[in-house]
Every structure is written in C-alpha cells, then in structure tokens.
Design a protein around this nucleic acid. Structure first.
Length: 276
DNA sequence: ATATCTGCCTGCTCGC
DNA sequence: TGCGAGCAGGCAGATA
C-alpha cells in the first residue's frame, strides 16, 4: 500500500517530470475517484493549467497548478501514478491527465479506493488541519511533540501510529517496522511509553521511512513508481508480513496478531509488553 | 468528544 | 482443477 515513502518517492519523480508542463485535458473513467466536486468541474478547472510544483502531506500527493489551485491525490490501497507510453493498456486506469508533450499521467487503481480532488491553495491548511506532524520534519516531529500526542490515550500504540492525527504518513507496513525497530510491543497502551521509548520510537519512525524512500518504496502488492518500476524496499522489511520467519535480531519466529482490525507483526522476544 | 465499527472495492490466497 | 469464501486495509461516515 502506498504510505509516506511510496508517495514521497513518486512525488520526487513527478517534480522532475511535471513542473513546467501543462495539463491539457483530464479524462475520468471512474467518476467516484473524484471527490468533493463533479468530475466535469475538476476537468474544467485543471485543463490548460501549468504545473508549478509538487508536494506531499502525509500520504497525500500535491500537484500545484498555476492560478492558485492544487490537485490532491490519495492512492489509498492500490493506486498508482504512472507516465505510461502511449500504447500502454491498463484496464484499471480511472483518470488520465494529458500533458502538453504528448504524454499522459495515468491514475490506475483496481480497488477504486483512491481519491482525487482540487482545492484552492488558501484552503490547504484547512484541508489538512486534522493531520499530525510530518514525521521527517525535525522542527515539528520532536520527541516532546510525539509524547504530547500519545499522552492521555490508552489505545494500543499500533493503533495510535495508524491515526493520521498523531503523525501523518504511517500505514500498516511502516507502523509495524517502526515498532519492531524501537522494540515496542504493538499492544502497549500509548500513554504507557517511557520518555526513552518515545525517543526511540521517533528515531525508528524516521529511520524506516528514510530507508523506504531510498529504495523506491515497498512493493508488496501493487506499488509502482512513475516509470512503472517496483520498489525494492521489501528486502529491508524486518517484521511486516514475515509471520513465522525468524526475527532478524534474535531468530524468534515473528508472530501475527490483530490490532485495531489490522494484521500486526512483531517479535515476541524483542518487543515485550513491559517497558524497557 | 472520543473510540470503535461499517462500507467502499477487487485481486489474491486458501480449502474443499 | 475449479470455485466460493475470506482476507487485505486507508479513510469517511456512522454509531456507541
């Protein structure tokens, strides 16, 4: 699933490919992909505009357009953004952006969970008001800030990490990886973490995200980059979906439990319920 | 208000 | 071998 690293990697690629290009036309083949307005309205407001910048907030990809509006793309479970050659036949394309150089930026999504919308730049702070800090921003994502958001909630720490209001951009893969790296049991009540554990968790979150970005993201299922290439970060995954396989640190078989309705993978030896 | 549950979707895996 | 059931899971919206 596309999480922060998968979105960030694609954002960096798109920066080089799209900035300065003009979007001449938008074709939507699955109307519900467009959120907040009719597909025809989005198409009309985007057509003819030049791309002025690419950004990311949490798992949201931002395509800034001249005229003060920004396309917001969320790939959810199975969405990909690719610059396909003209003959590419993909039955899952839900929207296509025709560029002024003849290429097309395709949004492909079998599950149809993804969403594309358009917002005025002035409204972006309000659109993302509920999102927590960017985990790779050292100014806002401090140990103190993380501690403050975890205080007062007894939810399992795994559930808290999946809450985009606590920290933006983590999904099931990198939440499991961060907890494994920080040696924290996923069921630990969020408000029971010690200051040193919170500091370790913060470091672990940043580390697993940076490793993910460096390897083009984790391709477990369908994630592809802009050039339709799979990411190679699966080789660096230590816990997620490794049920029964040996822990890279101690050799104990990785276990799978369900936390907050989601498959959760951890080492029962390295990640104990009692605080370290 | 906060925390948990349901629906959205379809490709894939598993068991009979 | 074929087929149906169940799983995967981010997020909006509903419910407790």
């Amino acid at each position: 699933m596309p999480e922060l690293p998968e979105v960030e990697y694609v954002a960096r690629q798109l920066h080089g490919e799209l900035v300065g290009r003009r979007i001449e036309r938008v074709e939507v083949s699955w109307p519900r992909i467009v959120a907040g307005m009719a597909p025809e309205e989005l198409a009309a407001r985007v057509a003819g505009r030049m791309v002025t910048g690419i950004g990311r907030r949490g798992k949201y990809l931002l395509i800034a357009l001249e005229g003060g509006e920004t396309l917001i793309v969320h790939r959810r479970m199975s969405g990909n953004l690719t610059l396909a050659p003209p003959d590419a036949a993909d039955p899952y394309v839900r929207a296509a952006f025709a560029l002024d150089d003849g290429r097309r930026l395709l949004y492909s999504d079998p599950r149809k969970f993804g969403r594309i919308t358009l917002a005025a730049d002035a409204d972006l702070p309000r659109v993302f008001a509920a999102l927590g800090p960017e985990p790779l921003d050292d100014e806002t994502f401090t140990a103190a800030a993380l501690a403050a958001r975890l205080a007062g909630t007894k939810r399992p720490i795994k559930a808290a990490l999946l809450d985009q209001g606590i920290v933006a951009g983590l999904g099931n893969i990198y939440a499991d990886e961060a907890l494994f790296r920080a040696r924290i049991h996923p069921l630990r009540p969020a408000d029971s973490l010690t200051p040193s554990e919170i500091a370790a968790l913060r470091e672990a979150i940043q580390a697993v995200l940076l490793v993910g970005i460096a390897h083009g993201g984790t391709t477990f299922g369908r994630h592809r980059d802009v050039y339709n290439e799979a990411g190679t970060n699966l080789e660096h995954i230590e816990a997620y979906r490794r049920t029964g396989q040996p822990c890279p640190r101690c050799g104990t078989p990785i276990e799978r439990i369900v936390v907050a309705q989601r498959g959760t993978h951890y080492c029962p030896h390295c990640q104990r319920m009692d605080a370290n």
